[in-house]
Nucleic acid binder design. Structure first.
Lengths: 147, 147
DNA sequence: CTGGATGCAAACTCTTTGCATGCAT
DNA sequence: ATGCATGCAAAGAGTTTGCATCCAG
């Protein structure tokens, strides 16, 4: 389904799995490839729906644990929970999120945000592995027009 | 329990409720006063536990709907969901949050964050009532030391 | 009076856990 | 062969909803 990125994407995952002494399984490859192919933040449910068509007998718990693993490996980023659901984002570069309080839609914001001072404050308090994400919450155009 | 702020706090709520044509009820006054008294972000469950001692026969759904109302009235700010639970913050000035991924603790960060460009981006996309909040997620000192 | 607000209980959603089986190493 | 990873099912946590009753205006 995503032939252009398949090779490189699989290669990076296999390399990361081997480096962490984790097993390379068809489910992990397919879940990773699917999230990359969606090319936007997706819920576990969405990834699951898309993986089902590609690989039989995949379970939702496996999707959750694999997405969590991808986050640990640095090959995806867990965002949220946002609007009540956990999202997983294939984008690895810094960006932020815009959430509609009404319909739950999530969009990317590429505006720059100076997170250095906040991360520094976290470090000073003894936090490790700290990462910053800006969430802008509002009511989207459609929901605003719908009243 | 919070005599020093009680009068002013109640007054602001009563005024806001009247302005929005909503009713002034003992539950609303007590929930508002309790959140202010806690003086930190609290979950609905926490507010509920503290209100129970002050006013008999208060229900958790009422706490939820009242905290949501306070957010609408601008007398509290809903934060989250963070670490799986919705938090409500009596602080009205700009500040951000530091969350431990392990134990779920939430602390305030007072470091300045330039949210203007992100809010402007939201406005350009047609979002209304947009507000920005930075979430720094990491592992706190205690959890880091605990392994 | 009258309709918004409440209390209670139950439903709902998303996520996590337990356990037996299976497959990557 | 070994034990991590998986599938299935069921539990768990937090939040929301429905409805009869109550009380603020």
């Amino acid at each position: 389904m995503f032939p252009a990125t398949k090779q490189h994407t699989d290669g990076a995952l296999v390399k990361a799995l081997r480096a962490h002494k984790r097993r390379v399984t068809p489910q992990r490859l397919m879940i990773h490839r699917t999230l990359r192919g969606l090319n936007r933040h997706a819920s576990a449910e969405e990834v699951f729906a898309n993986v089902e068509g590609q690989l039989p007998n995949v379970s939702l718990p496996t999707v959750y644990s694999t997405l969590e693993l991808l986050d640990e490996l640095g090959l995806a980023r867990r965002v949220g929970p946002v609007a009540g659901r956990m999202l997983f984002d294939p984008r690895l570069d810094e960006h932020h999120h815009l959430v509609c309080l009404r319909c739950g839609r999530v969009e990317d914001i590429d505006a720059p945000v100076e997170t250095g001072p906040a991360l520094e404050a976290a470090r000073r308090r003894g936090y490790t592995r700290a990462r910053a994400g800006l969430i802008v919450a509002g009511v989207c155009r459609d929901c605003t027009e719908a009243g």
